[in-house]
Design a protein around this nucleic acid. Structure first.
Length: 276
DNA sequence: ACGAGATCCTGTCAGC
DNA sequence: TGCTGACAGGATCTCG
């Protein structure tokens, strides 16, 4: 499930490949991936030049310019199983291709998605700014200081993990990095955010930043489907201490890790190392 | 206003 | 062997 580090890795990998190139046409292979409608989506993207490739929250953003028309943004949300890859011509890519972007100078890149939850949108600047999901996104966790971080959690009467996953509180954290940062900070996922002292929230801020930065350095986590822009796996899954390890011994104290649900998400924690 | 739970979708895997 | 059901999960919708 692509979260902040995976989307960042994809954006950084695609950027040198796509900068300055022109989308000749977008071929929508599965209309469910383009909720604006395949025709409008394809019409908008024709002849658009790629000026930048970047990430905001878990969203891939391609800044596009078009001759004689307003600037455009291609916003791609990968959700759980989406990917944006340089055309690899592998059976896997072919089978799950949802949108193929054909470049004017030959070549292409492809939006792939097994579970079909991901979406591609072609938006003008005003449309992007007024898109409720985009407009309400919280700040980037790697760009926040401890004080700002603490302020966004204090007084919230819900599980601290649910707050971490809430994209309006902060943007880009998903299930993996929520569990991993809470373990490293020694905080139980089901503890109410409001019950945590400022020093403990500062610890969570520090560990979240560390875990996200390490994951970006290691090109993200590959479980099941995730691949970077070149089709390569990440390495951070080898650094998981709790995610997906329920029933296994804690790497710190040896206690059996406990699996449960918090905020409707599968959650793993160490009952000894993580306190409420 | 805010929180909780159901929903979407399909590949994978455990169990019979 | 082949089938069934549980599970994974981000954002959105509905309900309390």
């Amino acid at each position: 499930m692509p979260e902040l580090p995976e989307v960042e890795t994809i954006a950084q990998g695609l950027k040198p490949l796509l900068l300055g190139r022109v989308i000749a046409r977008a071929r929508v292979l599965d209309p469910i991936s383009t909720p604006q409608g395949a025709d409008l989506f394809a019409r908008r993207l024709a002849k658009a030049r790629i000026r930048d490739v970047r990430r905001r929250a878990k969203l891939l953003l391609l800044d596009l310019e078009r001759p004689g028309k307003p600037d455009l943004f291609l916003a791609v949300h990968l959700r759980m199983t989406g990917g944006l890859v340089a055309d690899l011509d592998s059976d896997e890519v072919r089978r799950f291709s949802r949108v193929r972007f054909e470049l004017a100078d030959g070549g292409s890149f492809v939006f792939t998605d097994i579970r079909r939850f991901g979406t591609c949108l072609a938006l003008t600047a005003p449309e992007l700014a007024s898109w409720p999901f985009f407009a309400t996104l919280g700040p980037e966790p790697l760009e926040m200081d401890a004080e700002g971080f603490v302020g966004r959690f204090q007084g919230r009467n819900k599980a601290v993990k649910a707050a971490l996953l809430d994209q309006t509180v902060l943007a880009g954290v998903g299930n993996i990095y929520a569990d991993e940062s809470l373990f490293r900070a020694g905080i139980r996922p089901m503890a109410k955010a409001a019950s945590l002292s400022a020093p403990r929230l500062q610890g969570l801020h520090r560990h979240l930043q560390e875990v996200l930065a390490q994951a970006i350095r290691e090109n993200g986590s590959s479980i099941r489907d995730y691949r970077d822009a070149g089709g390569n796996a990440g390495a951070f899954q080898n650094s998981f201490r709790v995610y997906g390890r329920a029933g296994e011994p804690c790497v710190v104290c040896g206690t059996k890790l406990r699996g449960t649900k918090v905020g409707g998400r599968s959650t793993t924690y160490c009952p000894k190392c993580q306190k409420g």
